[in-house]
């Protein structure tokens, strides 16, 4: 197990995070949720950047408070609203990374910088949001880490850059099957094509954990009018939402409803729908 969080509780004045999740070796696990749902707080707790009130976290077998240089060298991190000091240039970062990470691949990093059009002689504070995001990812994937913790890594990137960055993650995983990634994003399509499993977090709580294949193949959105809804078997309905035309229901067994209710529309599920329904609908 790469990461295990059991009953983590972190209380703030107006927000409480209460979550459990795990990331298996060789897996890419996604974490989605709206802004302020608790994704970044979870990341910070895992990395030992904040204290927490109760619960257990083990990252590569260590508690966050036990993480020393040797463990941190094996982790690559990108955070949504934080990066290298804006007063540094890429050419300043290279020797810093080389001194900090024994496994830093300078040539690969510089090649990727050129590929992604990241200037070396410009202050980072003058970079666009997309450029900053790309730089953070490139730094995270080029020091031979075993585990990547990526909080909104593709924010601000255009579609082409996003696709190339997602390919980098896939390459990273192919290089060593013992590696893992925990990634959060608000762009569902990024996660759909990348993750093995997914957690949906809402108001500080995990409200759904599912294998991505299962979610895409078995989940469906039932669109029913009042009469159809009334006779619908609710056994496999996860969440219901009232619409002007009747009801929308999220199910994790679309085959069952397609077979037994041929007159009712059952659309294929997607991550976006799962998020919308689980966070906006009434959970059954």
């Amino acid at each position: 197990m790469m990461l295990e969080i059991n009953g983590l509780v972190k209380k703030y004045k107006d927000f409480t995070l209460n979550c459990s999740m795990k990331v298996e070796r060789g897996c890419i696990t996604g974490l989605v949720g709206e802004n302020g749902a608790g994704k970044s707080t979870a990341f910070k707790a895992v990395l030992g950047l904040i204290s927490y009130d109760s619960g257990d976290i083990t990252l590569m077998g260590k508690l966050p408070s036990e993480l020393r240089e040797a463990e941190k060298e094996k982790i690559g991190v990108t955070l949504a609203e934080s990066g290298f000091s804006g007063y540094l240039k890429v050419k300043d970062i290279v020797p810093v990374m080389a001194a900090m990470y024994p496994g830093f691949d300078r040539e690969r990093f510089l090649n990727l910088c050129r590929k992604f059009s990241i200037p070396q002689d410009k202050y980072i504070k003058e970079f666009s949001t997309g450029m900053k995001a790309k730089l953070k990812v490139l730094a995270a994937v080029t020091h031979n880490a075993d585990f990547l913790l990526l909080d909104e890594p593709t924010t601000g990137m255009d579609v082409t850059a996003r696709e190339s960055i997602l390919d980098l993650f896939r390459e990273y995983m192919e290089e060593d099957e013992g590696r893992s990634i925990l990634i959060s994003s608000h762009i569902s399509s990024d996660l759909e094509g990348l993750c093995d499993d997914i957690y949906i977090i809402h108001e500080g709580k995990i409200i759904l954990h599912e294998d991505m294949d299962n979610l895409l193949n078995e989940y469906g959105l039932i669109k029913a009018d009042d009469e159809q809804y009334a006779r619908l078997d609710k056994e496999h309905i996860l969440s219901v939402r009232r619409t002007p035309f009747g009801y929308e229901c999220l199910t994790d067994q679309k085959g069952y409803y397609r077979e037994n209710y041929p007159d009712i529309v059952v659309e294929n599920g997607s991550l976006d729908e799962a998020i919308t329904m689980m966070t906006g609908g009434e959970r059954l």
């Binding site: 950047l49 240089e69 941190k72 060298e73 990066g83 290298f84 007063y87 504070k125 913790l149």
Partner: peptide, 12 residues
Amino acid sequence: YDNGYLFLMTLP
């Protein structure tokens, strides 16, 4: 600057 502390402490 720009919340950089946070990231700095994720490095080794």
